[in-house]
Structure formats: structure tokens, C-alpha cells
Design a protein around this nucleic acid. Structure first.
Length: 638
RNA sequence: CGGGGCGUGGCGCAGUCUGGUAGCGCACCAGUCUGGGGGACUGGUGGUCGUCGGUUCAAAUCCGGCCGCCCCGACCA
């Protein structure tokens, strides 16, 4: 009944043309879709569905739910945040929580559509899984306890624990257990677009890092590792095409598997100074890795005889820099201790050479820290018999000692004596203290040798716009998702998971495509292809006539282009400024001047190129979708 | 969670130090003029100054609690 009302509403008021047009179109619709034998309500909801899909191909700015802001909102710093707010695409509801206004929704839909087409192309099947899950589903995989407060939890009315999904591996695995029986059903990929809730410790950067967001997450299901490998690289290819179409230059970097678990992962990164990840890149070859996993080949320390331990007074040298200066040695001759506490309460003492930094991701992996790690407090360090500023594992107790593999090979280092103002010379791991774990623990630094070719690497910040993971059988094992192979035996389904954050991509597109005046949407994701500006309607009635005609043409069935018509009674300056802020690829100006010059002024937003085209050419553009090449003769007077 | 900043009409801000009952620009409404780069004039609308409590004759202003937002560090699409 409600649907009927909406359709009725279409027939009157300002949207008369467009609404009516759609209704007529769907009545004619594809064979079998007509009204034969169907109730009026069903027909009406069909119409509504069609209208929703077309989503107002022509819109009057005077009716659009939006507003532009003349001043930058003070909370916005990144260009994408500022512009999306100012141009009326999004509004903030809370920290990391945003509403999409109609323009923002249209962009998001376009981005989704590109992703969808590329997922479909590699055989992905779209489905949809719930946002709210019973906690038991997450207990079964172990993540209910493994993941910290970023997992949203609540109780339903009966006191049952529930989870707000941050991803969907568990649910997919359960569905696989239910649906897949035979190897003949594999390989297979499913995906959906769904809202995720991740209670991030800190939201930031507008749409770049939010707490609630829509993600495309895809899951591949294979019989074995070889199949997974094929699916993984198919997704890799789909991602390359997707980001290319979205106008994003991405770099695929090897990455940590994080909370997903699994054996191999890549992140697709967009370079951006405000990015939260540090990428290690080689310009000589194409090596690219997240700093979290980049392993740098370190120069082998010179072999030396282990010398006897020797105490040395080093007053006031609580930093490596001051210690090295005091003893007149290089920082690489010292061992640095860093103290952390794991989520499960273990004190971890990490030892790296003084000239290097501890990479916390590597450390977490080295000690299999459940719930991550945090820096230890002074009290915690002292309780284990160590002295901050003069700390080392020598004489320490109740701590997990993790040393960098380079430390294991570096003889006669200077390290703390766990007494204020005292260090030891000639400390040797293994002789003077024992390591519980030896692993690569250090951060790559600018200029370090490339692991592949040895040239100096560079460090850049990046924003992760997508990732691909080889999961293996972790979730299928937990869910009992198996198939019967040709051998008649049950085998676990081998899974992969592949995510793309929709809103973050939108923000990154703006980051990459804007200028001082506003957004410059790539054609593929622009909410409307063209922004029609009508000027001087009061002096020249033909202006409105022409604008109306273009507007209704765009609204008609069969038109390939969608337009936004600025029909407001505003001065030309306001209209042009807003058009540039909003960022449609083409700005079409109808005015007494343009009509006198022979038609409509067409401006390409990206280049600023301007030409006057005959009205028929612009009409062709709306119908065919192609803007004809610029005709120099017609341009002369512009 | 640690550090820094902020909260006054839709947006940007002043006023807070030195208490005296709220102001500016833009936006918005009405009208007139204007009409190719955020135009002009006239007249208007709109704020329990984040919130709760305290001090005081009197609190946006001083004191305390709480809430929220932004930025910098530990997590991820």
C-alpha cells in the first residue's frame, strides 16, 4: 500500500515528468513482467523497484536533499573529508559514523557497482549475510575471545550474547558446511556488500577510518591449496581492474595476516601522506611490502671472540643515543630493550640492536600474543627485576625474552645492567642471558637494502583500500565445512577472504581527484554525468525551455546519462562555484549568451576545457552516453 | 588507553584571562534591484553558550564531575 502511494506521488508535483516516465516504462517492461494477473500492489512495488534502480536519472538541485557549505567545517582536515562534507555528500553522526546524503549514496552505489561487476566477472556470486550474529558462532572459531573490544557485543532480550559482525568468515563457513557436499560444487566464490561494525580505538580522517562501514567481502572455497592459489590470484586480478576503473593507483604489497589468520596476504594500497600504513618500496625492482612484514637483509656482524662481561658506569644514559655518545661507540654496538605486555598478561622483553626499531607486528607474531601487546609500565618492568633506561634480560625473571635474529649473531654488545647508571660491555646473547624466542623483529628503515635486489628502499605512507587473504582451513575446520572428494573421503574446504571498503574507496577517490575548487569525479563513479547550469532564465525564456528539455530527456527511458540541473534562483557565481565543488565530469551551461553563441557551453571539469556545442549534440550525449569530439568550428565564438 | 586541542544559531568564529544577562561574517526568510564567477540594499527568523552540580546579588565567563568531537601515538577495509 505504501508503495502505491509513492507511485501516486510521482504523478504530481515537481517530479511529474520523471515519475510518470518510469511508470510508463515499466508498464511496457520486459515480456512477462507486466501486470497480467498480478495485484495492483505487486505492480506498484515492481515500479518502485525499477524507479529505485534508476534512482532519479535527472534531479533538480532545488529539490535535492543537500546543502553546500561555504566554510570548511573545523573538524575536517583531509581533502576528502572536507570536500565531501562541504559539497553535501556526507554528514557525521558520531565519531567514525556517517550518513550518506543522496549524492553520497549515489557515489557509493557506483563504487559498489564497479566492484560487483569485477567480482561477477571472476565468477563471484552475490549473496547477503546478517549483521548480527549469535556469539556462539564466534566462540566456535575462537575469535570471540581472541578479539578485543573492537568486536561489538551486546545481549538480546533473552540475555543471549550477540555480536555485531566485523567480518563474515564464520557465517560463510557455516553456510558451506550446510550447502557444500561434493567436490563437484567446488571451486566456488561468494561475496556480499554488508555493513561492518569495528569499534576502532580511534576513528580518523573522515571516511578513511570509520567504525561503521560497508565492505565488499568475498570468500573463495576450494578443494585444495592449488585451488586456493588460483582463486587468490583471480581476486588479485579483479582488484587490479576494480581499482583501475575507480581511478585509484594502487600498489599490492605483501602483508601481515593479522586477526584473519592464514598463510599469505596482500594489501592494495593507495599512496597518501595521511595513510596509516608504512610501505617499504623499491624503485629499482618492484619489491613492495607492508613494513609489518618486510624482512631486511642485514649486513652480517663481524666475527669476534666473545670477551668477558665487564661492568661500566654510564650515568645519565637512558637513551641509546646518549649511551653511544658517552661510550664513543656506534649505536649498532648496543642492544636495546623494549618492554611490552601481551593481551594475556605476559611481560615481553624485546631486544634489538641499538640502531634499529622494534616492529610490534613482528613481535606479536613472534610470541603469538593473544589480544595484541601494549607498552609495559615502569612498575611492570621493575617487578621483573629490570631497570627502565638500563634494562636487559640479564638477571631478569618472569619475562619472555625475544631477541632479533641479528642480536643472536652480534657479539660483544653494550647492554643494560638493570641498575641505574650502569651498563655491561661484551654482552653475548646465549652466554649472558637466554632467549625464549629468536626472530626477525626489526623495522625496515629508509635506505635499507631491498630484500630482492639490494638497492636502497624507500618508505611511503599508504591507505589500504582492499586486501586478499589465504585463510586455509581455519574457519572450515571450526565449522565442520567439508566436502567429499573423488576419493570418497571428507576434506576441509580451503578458504580465502577478500575485502574492499566501499566508503574508504570513495574517500580515496576524492583524495586522488580534486583541486582547489572541489571534487573532480572520474566518470565511472560520478553521481551524475553532467551538471546543468541554467543562467538568465528571467531574461530569456528559451533558457528554461532548453534546460527543461535536457532534463526530461535525461529522465527518459533509454538515456544513458544522468544529469543534475541547478534550477535554483541563484547568481551565476554561486552556481558555477557549487558545480565545481560538486564535481560532475561535465558542466553544461545554458544561458542567453550560450544560446546566442549557438547552443550550450560544455565544460570538462577535469581540464577546464570549454566549448559551445549545438543543443542536438548535448542531447545526443544524454542519449548515447558519448560526448562528441569537440568541433573547432562550433567553438570559435566561445 | 596515553598526550594535545576544542565545545557559543546551519557553517566559520569573537566574547572566557579581568563575572553584569550574547555578538560578528556567511547561510536562511520576505521584498526591491541585479544577472557569466560565492552581487547590492532594506527588513526579518534563529542560540536554555555541550551537560549536571557548586561559588556568587549576578556565570558563556570562576570551581568540580560527566558527555561529545578533532589531532598525535598502539589496531584494520
Amino acid at each position: 500500500m505504501e508503495a502505491v502511494d509513492v507511485v501516486e506521488h510521482d504523478r504530481q508535483g515537481d517530479y511529474g515528468d520523471e515519475g510518470g516516465g518510469h511508470a510508463v516504462q515499466c508498464d511496457r517492461g520486459p515480456p512477462g513482467w507486466g501486470s497480467g494477473g498480478r495485484s495492483r500492489a505487486m505492480v506498484a512495488s515492481r515500479r518502485l523497484a525499477v524507479r529505485r534502480r534508476l534512482s532519479l536519472p535527472a534531479m533538480r538541485l532545488s529539490q535535492l536533499f543537500f546543502t553546500t557549505l561555504r566554510d570548511d567545517p573545523s573538524e575536517a582536515e583531509m581533502p576528502s573529508h572536507r570536500l565531501l562534507l562541504r559539497a553535501g555528500y556526507v554528514r557525521q553522526l558520531g565519531s567514525g559514523i556517517y550518513s550518506l546524503l543522496p549524492l553520497g549514496k549515489r557515489v557509493n552505489d557506483r563504487v559498489e557497482q564497479v566492484i560487483r561487476e569485477e567480482q561477477d566477472r571472476i565468477g563471484g556470486q552475490e549473496m547477503e549475510m546478517p549483521v548480527v550474529h549469535p556469539a556462539d558462532v564466534w566462540r566456535a572459531s575462537g575469535r570471540y575471545d581472541a578479539i578485543g573490544p573492537e568486536l561489538g557485543r551486546f545481549k538480546d532480550r533473552n540475555g543471549r550474547d550477540m555480536v555485531l559482525a566485523m567480518t563474515h568468515e564464520e557465517v560463510v563457513a557455516l553456510l558451506l558446511a550446510d550447502v557444500v557436499r561434493s567436490h563437484r560444487q567446488l571451486p566456488m566464490q561468494v561475496y556480499h556488500f554488508q555493513t561492518k561494525w569495528r569499534d576502532e580505538p580511534r576513528a580518523r580522517g573522515g571516511l578513511i577510518r570509520v567504525r561503521e562501514f560497508v565492505m565488499k567481502d568475498a570468500y573463495s572455497c576450494d578443494r585444495d591449496d592449488a585451488g586456493l592459489d588460483a582463486s587468490y590470484w583471480a581476486q588479485h586480478g579483479a582488484y587490479v581492474r576494480t581499482f583501475q576503473r575507480l581511478g585509484l593507483d594502487t600498489i599490492a604489497v605483501a602483508s601481515d595476516v593479522g586477526m584473519m589468520g592464514g598463510s599469505q596476504a596482500h594489501e592494495f594500497m593507495v599512496l597518501n601522506a595521511a595513510g596509516e600504513d608504512v610501505l617499504v618500496l623499491c624503485e629499482a625492482c618492484d619489491y613492495a611490502a607492508n613494513r609489518q612484514v618486510a624482512v631486511i637483509p642485514r649486513e652480517e656482524p663481524a666475527a669476534e671472540e666473545a670477551l668477558p662481561l665487564e661492568e661500566v658506569a654510564t650515568p645519565g644514559t637512558t637513551t641509546i643515543a646518549s649511551l653511544a655518545a658517552f661510550l664513543e661507540i656506534g649505536p649498532e654496538r648496543t642492544a636495546k630493550a623494549a618492554f611490552f605486555v601481551t593481551g594475556d598478561g605476559r611481560l615481553v622483553t624485546a631486544i634489538v640492536r641499538g640502531d634499529l626499531e622494534v616492529n610490534e607486528t613482528k613481535l606479536v607474531n613472534a610470541v603469538s600474543a593473544v589480544g595484541g601487546i601494549r607498552p609495559a609500565t615502569v612498575e611492570e618492568i621493575k617487578a621483573a627485576g629490570m631497570e627502565p633506561g638500563y634494562g636487559s634480560p640479564i638477571g631478569a625473571h618472569e619475562t619472555v625474552v625475544v631477541i632479533d635474529d641479528l642480536i643472536a649473531r652480534s657479539p660483544n654488545l653494550v647492554a643494560g645492567a638493570n641498575r641505574e647508571g650502569v651498563h655491561y660491555r661484551n654482552v653475548n646473547a646465549g652466554r649472558d642471558y637466554t632467549a625464549d624466542v629468536t626472530a626477525d623483529l626489526t623495522n625496515a628503515q629508509e635506505g635499507d637494502p631491498c630484500p630482492t635486489c639490494g638497492a636502497p628502499v624507500i618508505l611511503r605512507n599508504g591507505i589500504e583500500v582492499g586486501n586478499i587473504f589465504k585463510l586455509g582451513t581455519k574457519y572450515s575446520d571450526a565449522a565442520g565445512a567439508t566436502y567429499l572428494g573423488e576419493d570418497g573421503q571428507a576434506h576441509p574446504i580451503v578458504m580465502g577472504s577478500y575485502g574492499i571498503g566501499v566508503g574508504r574507496n570513495t574517500a580515496c577517490i576524492v583524495e586522488a581527484h580534486h583541486d582547489a575548487k572541489g571534487i573532480i569525479w572520474p566518470v565511472e563513479v560520478a553521481p551524475y554525468a553532467a551538471h546543468l547550469v541554467s543562467i538568465g532564465a528571467a531574461r530569456e525564456p528559451r533558457v528554461t525551455e532548453v534546460a527543461e528539455r535536457l532534463h526530461s530527456l535525461a529522465a527518459e527511458a533509454g538515456s544513458r546519462r544522468e544529469i543534475l540541473w541547478d534550477d535554483r534562483d541563484e547568481s551565476p557565481g554561486v552556481k558555477f562555484t557549487d558545480a565545481e565543488l560538486l564535481g560532475m565530469p561535465w558542466i553544461l551551461t545554458v544561458s542567453p549568451r550560450s544560446l546566442a553563441a549557438g547552443g550550450i557551453e560544455v565544460t570538462e571539469r577535469a581540464t577546464g576545457d570549454r566549448s559551445t556545442r549545438p543543443i542536438t549534440e548535448v542531447e545526443d550525449f544524454l542519449v548515447s552516453g558519448v560526448m562528441p569530439e569537440r568541433d573547432e568550428a562550433a567553438t570559435a565564438s566561445a
